[in-house]
Each structure stands twice: as C-alpha cells, then as structure tokens.
C-alpha cells in the first residue's frame, strides 16, 4: 500500500485487496440520499430543512452520548447515524414539530441501534424504530400534513414546526387552506382508502402530493437506488422483490375488482413504498444474506405492505412490513442456507 516504496510482494493466498469500508458505503448512501433531501427542501421549504437538520443532528448527538456512556470508541465517522437521521426525517411529515423530531431521533438511535450493540448488531432498521415510536406516541401530529409547493414556503415556517417542547402543536388546517387552495390535508392513500378518490399519476411524478418529507420523489429515489446498486452498495434484489411483489399483488386485485382496487402504478408511487424499498429494506444489517432469503424477504415486505393498505386499519403499511420482515431475517437466513459445494442434497 505504501506508495513511496514500490516493490513486488510475494505472498501466499488469501490475497486481500483494499476492501470496501463501512465508511465508504455509508458515504455513498448519503450521496444517494442528497438529491431526495434537496428535492424535499425545495418542495416543502424552511420547515422541511429545519426538520431534517434537527433530526439528523439529534441522531448524531445521541450516538455520541451513548458511545461516551458505554466508554466505546466513537462510531460517528462511519456516517451511519447521519443516514439514520436523514432517512428518519424523510419519513416524517414536513411540518412535524421539531421537539417530536428530537424524540424520534433519540428513539431511533437509542432504542433501535445502540441498545442492540451499535452498527451491525441492530435487529430492526433504526430509522423505522424511531418513526414507529413517534407514530405510537403522537398519532395526530404524524398524520398532520402540509401542502407541497406552498408559495410562502421559503419565507415562513409552518406554525407547527416550532411547537414548544412537550406541548401540543397548533391546529394548522386553516393555515394550510390559505397556503394552498383546495388543500384537504389527507395523503393520496388516505383519500383512496376513505373516500375512494384516486390521485393522478402525474401528480406523484411532479411531487404535487401530500406526503412525508421524502416520499414524493419517486424518480430521484430510483436514481439513488440505481447508483447504489450499480456500485454494489445495495442488493438490487430487495427493491425489485418488494416493488415487484407489491405490483403483482396490486395488479391481481385490480383485475379482480377495478372499481375498488387501484392500479399498480398508484400502489407503487403512493406512500413510502418506494423510499422504504430502496433505502430501508436494503439496510445491510437487517436484511438476509442468502440469495433466496433476500427474495423471500423482499416479497414478504411487498405482500404485507399491500395487505395492510388494503385490509388494515392503517393507510400505509411499509413501515410495519419492513419491521416485521426484519424480525424474521434470522429465521429466513437459517432456512435458506445454500448447500455447501460438493455436498449432495440428501446429506
């Protein structure tokens, strides 16, 4: 490795080349996330910016504090806390009160990661643990949406952003109606589920829908996914399996009853399915390692997501689908071990 003394080294195997380090992978994931983050800020303005910065900073600080408390070396330089923070912020409503964002960040890192022993040991995706915690704790705030592309988004914050800690966020339905005419405050999934109204596909592509901060930019998410998959930093099978199984299931339901069940495109583009499939289901620590296991895992997520959306009480199911599949990963790995080379199947 040392450049100044070029010489031929002769060694017996195994030969090691300069490996892909955790830092490099994580840094690339951050890069792949950046366009989504920027789009989200462009879409929702100052409030989204404040939320993303706060949640990410909380995750980093929490990781640092726990490192210090357990007297272990700092793991900040591997960027994983930053990714958790970014992903968590992208799954929250853009005008989520900042103090609740802090709670989510602490829960994500504290409950979802360091309690299990830190990076690589966590059973569940930390960002989703954080989101599940605040969804259970603050069910109203996490379903309070704001319009995208409101004209005043770069000149003022949404009133809920700076809610006094521990206090209830103010009611913003009036504010939102003024900010954007005809704003209903419901996500496309909720509007489909409760009112049977379909949102046109082009709205999803331009981002003109009500959603969590990072859910609307399907194209950017896919681009990030392609980049990471091309560099082999994520297993392409997982998003393909998740999205594919969701699409096939949705298509089957649509054929069966087109009046009630939407087209596959709606299912793929709405909610957090895309973000979850590309960036969260693919978390290396919480997904299977065997090729067959990866397919099973992805299909399970897709099927559970669609099932929750169609038949559950919730409007979106990707979060619980991924957490559920995370829990099954050790089992999946155990049952899908490939046969050792040279062995017969019967043995």
């Amino acid at each position: 490795m040392t450049a100044q003394t070029p010489q031929i080294q002769l060694r017996t195997s195994p030969h090691m080349k300069r490996g892909v380090t955790v830092e490099r992978i994580m840094l690339n994931v951050v890069l792949a996330l950046l366009p989504i983050v920027l789009f989200s800020i462009w879409q929702y303005g100052l409030s989204a910016l404040a939320l993303i910065v706060t949640v990410t900073a909380t995750c980093v600080v929490t990781e640092r504090l726990f490192n210090r408390a357990s007297r272990s070396a700092s793991t900040l330089s591997d960027w994983s806390a930053v990714i958790t923070g970014l992903l968590l912020a992208l799954t929250l409503p853009p005008a989520f009160p900042l103090w609740m964002g802090v709670v989510a960040g602490v829960a994500a890192i504290g409950l979802g990661k360091v309690l299990f022993g830190g990076i690589g040991f966590n059973v569940f995706n930390p960002a989703l643990v954080g989101r599940a915690f605040v969804q259970a704790a603050f069910p109203v705030a996490i379903t309070t949406w704001v319009p995208a592309f409101s004209p005043t988004r770069f000149s003022e914050f949404v009133p809920t952003t700076f809610t006094v800690p521990l206090m209830m966020p103010p009611d913003i339905s009036e504010w939102a109606r003024q900010a954007l005419d005809g704003f209903t405050g419901a996500t496309p999934l909720a509007r489909w589920k409760f009112e049977n109204e379909l949102t046109p596909v082009q709205d999803f592509l331009t981002g003109a829908v009500t959603a969590s901060a990072g859910e609307t930019s399907a194209i950017l998410i896919l681009l990030g996914g392609f980049y990471l998959a091309a560099r082999k930093f994520l297993d392409w099978r997982i998003p393909v399996a998740v999205l594919g199984s969701a699409a096939v299931l949705a298509w089957a339901f649509h054929l069966h009853d087109p009046g009630h069940f939407p087209e596959p495109a709606f299912v793929l583009l709405s909610g957090g399915l895309m973000l979850g499939a590309v960036f969260m289901a693919t978390d290396m620590a919480t997904s299977p390692v065997t090729p067959l296991g990866v397919w099973l895992y992805g299909i399970l997520i897709g099927v559970v997501t669609v099932s929750i959306r169609y038949f559950g009480g919730l409007t979106e199911g990707i979060m619980y689908a991924i957490l559920f599949a995370n829990a099954l990963v050790p089992l999946i790995d155990q049952y899908t071990q490939p046969k050792v080379f040279g062995q017969r199947r019967s043995s």
């Binding site: 259970a136 704790a137 521990l166 206090m167």
Partner: peptide, 16 residues
Amino acid sequence: LFGPDFQPWVVMVLPP
C-alpha cells in the same frame, strides 16, 4: 402538570 396544551405521549398509556 403542564397545562391544557400538553401533548400526551399516547404510546405511554398503551401496552408498549
């Protein structure tokens, strides 16, 4: 303890 504007952490009164 915190006045009428307190935001309850719903999860705390649920089993988890």
